[in-house]
Nucleic acid binder design. Sequence first.
DNA 1: TCAAAAGTGTTGGAGCTACACCCATGC
DNA 2: GCATGGGTGTAGCTCCAACACTTTTGA
Lengths: 232, 232
Amino acid sequence: MCQPAEQQEISVAVSTVILALLPGGDGTPRVHLPLVRRTRDPYRDEWALPGGWVCKDESLRDAARRTLAETTGLRPSYLEQLYTFGRPDRSPTGRVLSVVYSALVRTHEATVAEEGENVRWCAADDATGLAFDHDEIVRYALWRLRTKVEYAHIALHFLDETFSMAQLREVYEAVLQRPLDPANFRRHVEASGTIVPTGERLTGTRHRPPRLYRALVPEGSPGPLATAGPLS
Amino acid sequence: MCQPAEQQEISVAVSTVILALLPGGDGTPRVHLPLVRRTRDPYRDEWALPGGWVCKDESLRDAARRTLAETTGLRPSYLEQLYTFGRPDRSPTGRVLSVVYSALVRTHEATVAEEGENVRWCAADDATGLAFDHDEIVRYALWRLRTKVEYAHIALHFLDETFSMAQLREVYEAVLQRPLDPANFRRHVEASGTIVPTGERLTGTRHRPPRLYRALVPEGSPGPLATAGPLS
DNA sequence: TCAAAAGTGTTGGAGCTACACCCATGC
DNA sequence: GCATGGGTGTAGCTCCAACACTTTTGA
């Protein structure tokens, strides 16, 4: 039998894997995430996921949203709890338990985030060599994104309020890393009933102007944990 | 900004939703879970999920396995992290963060568990009025079981080493709470390649003796978190 | 008129559901 | 034999991938 609180000496932190679609080397969108440079030991000057300690009277979700804003200035369009990492030796300085959240931010919002000396956007698949066990966390978050995007409608949280069918398809292609048939993709998402045409069209392209769509507020909850669902 | 450890005053506990199939009122299997009576405040004498405090040098998974054994004597055939509950007010006595695990135990093992004054098996859907936020936790665990059983091969962890096709079908019917076509069910699971016939048959029934099968050790991991997968 | 992407139609195959049917055993 | 569940076959249906084809704009 063990003891609670002070006898335990376990510190509780939150970390967040923030995902956004930014143009890659070839101009097509790729999944990116912001990293922050650590200003303290352990792992001083190394790159890590944004996060921080949980306050005494703060929910885990609020702590995730707060630390994410403090370190990167970003406001996520979607936030869900991912997993809790608690290996006794995962931090060299005392025991730290990290409740990890996964967040999605829209491309427009992501470009607002100040990139500087201590914050840097990184292509998600290239994020290695991070502090603590953050490599493992990032890989797990990407795996979850890629499996969940196939059955949940979370891709919409990467996009701005209105978007064309091709933009939505690009999101799926970037996440799943394979091309999708435009015709079949259109029928699939139209049948799902999660988006609705605005009546507007996107002009200024060098071809036929595509219809614009808007996300329908999700009606069915993803499960009995309402607080695990989307926010904002 | 907040502080770690002692300044935080957050106690870290694990709780486990242990699920097993036991005969219900009509003799067909139903999902049950063991509850333990609390011997301390808060919620003294009320029913709650088994659990306990995390020790300083113990992984969360080990803590789940240990507290589960201490309170119920059960050894799970499957154990995975479910979710972490951390509302600041979820315990009336100081802040408690509960990392909740979900465990499956085989029917044979479940009957071994001592049922007594302070441990009681309860039909999962009737488990209400529990201490803390454990009602919510149970509902979430059941939802996860019912969605996961459709795409993962976790139902096998309810059964003993060898089993007939009908027994496996009964597991699915109990979890999904609807009858399944025996013919289609057989083809479905045979195509999945997760079980293999032993060559033996189950005799003593009053009809044609069914073939016995054995679970194939799962080859593909459920994701990049190997520690989240099955044990034993 | 042409290039390029938007958007529609169509066809073949895979897989699933419902249900008919035979098989093998105990009684 | 008959009852009971084990196990197989199959027609019809839905869904989906592939790809041909038409539409609409800018240059």
